[in-house]
Amino acid sequence: MKYALVTGGSRGIGKAVCVQLAKDTNYHILINYNSNKDAALNTLEEVENAGGTGEILQFNVVNADEVKEVLDAWQDNNKDAVIEVLVNNAGITKDGLFMWMPHNDWQDVINTSLNGFFNVTNHLIQKLLVNRYGRIINMVSVSGLKGTPGQTNYSAAKGAVIAATKALAQEVAKRNITVNAVAPGFIKTDMTHDLNEKELKKMIPANRFGEAEEVAHAVSFLSSKKASYITGEVININGGIYS
């Protein structure tokens, strides 16, 4: 059996990705969550309702030791298993103007998006290289491309992941491993729940917020064999806001 791991898979875009992969592929979906077990179980239920199989895995992507411990224990229980697809989706926002930004708000956002990417990807990359096949998809943001005021920390974290995506893609391409990033704009999720959609959509050429499923379709495509000649790319899904 082949496996796909989605970090931060219990809610929002991560959840939509898990369900879409269940619909489109034969992968057994590993749904990572940090604290909200009920949400993760709910995602698992939707994966199964979509005709897929899966399980939940609890670890905090920020904690390298925990990542290693949980994934190693899982591997021991699934000796021949290969995680072929990795979707680095876990991320948080702690918005605020830079001049008033507490050190922790900077640190936490960088740790989750950037160090989380390192901890999980670095732990799995060797097996992908031995396997000579893999798909890594990093969830970034329009903020990481154009920068968003009030999100200097988030823009920095996502911008760094975009650069890492392009570098890693070149390192592993010979082994049939692609590394791409998906950069959503304003998508209807818990993360954007408090934003003023009515005001903000005036800035968006498509004149609406996107749906999580619209992002998940692109992730599903990038995780398939059909996308084998696409690597080091950033796919924008933002209704034309940054074009």
Rank of each mutant, 00 (worst) to 15 (best):
V6C: 11
G8R: 15
S10H: 13
G14H: 10
K15C: 09
V17L: 08
A22Q: 10
D24N: 12
T25L: 04
T25F: 14
Y27K: 10
L30N: 00
N32L: 05
N36D: 15
N36V: 03
K37D: 02
A39E: 13
E48T: 02
N49K: 15
G52R: 03
G54H: 02
G54P: 00
E55V: 07
N63V: 06
N63M: 02
V67I: 09
V67T: 12
L71H: 04
A73R: 10
D80P: 01
V82R: 12
V82N: 09
I83D: 03
I83Q: 02
L86M: 12
L86W: 02
V87G: 08
N89W: 02
G91C: 11
G91W: 14
I92K: 03
D95S: 07
D95T: 03
D95Q: 00
D95C: 01
P102N: 03
Q107P: 05
D108M: 14
V109C: 11
I110K: 05
N111R: 05
S113V: 13
N115M: 14
F117K: 07
F118C: 06
N119L: 04
N119R: 10
N131L: 11
Y133H: 15
L145W: 00
K146W: 00
G147R: 08
P149E: 06
N153L: 08
Y154A: 06
G159P: 05
I162M: 05
A163N: 13
A163S: 15
K166I: 13
I177E: 06
N180L: 09
A181Q: 03
A183M: 10
I187Y: 10
K188L: 12
D190H: 08
D190K: 06
T192M: 10
K198C: 00
K202G: 09
A206N: 07
G210K: 10
G210A: 06
A212I: 09
V215Y: 05
F221P: 08
F221R: 08
A227S: 14
S228F: 00
T231M: 12
E233I: 01
N236F: 06
N236G: 05
I237F: 01
N238S: 14
N238R: 04
S243K: 12
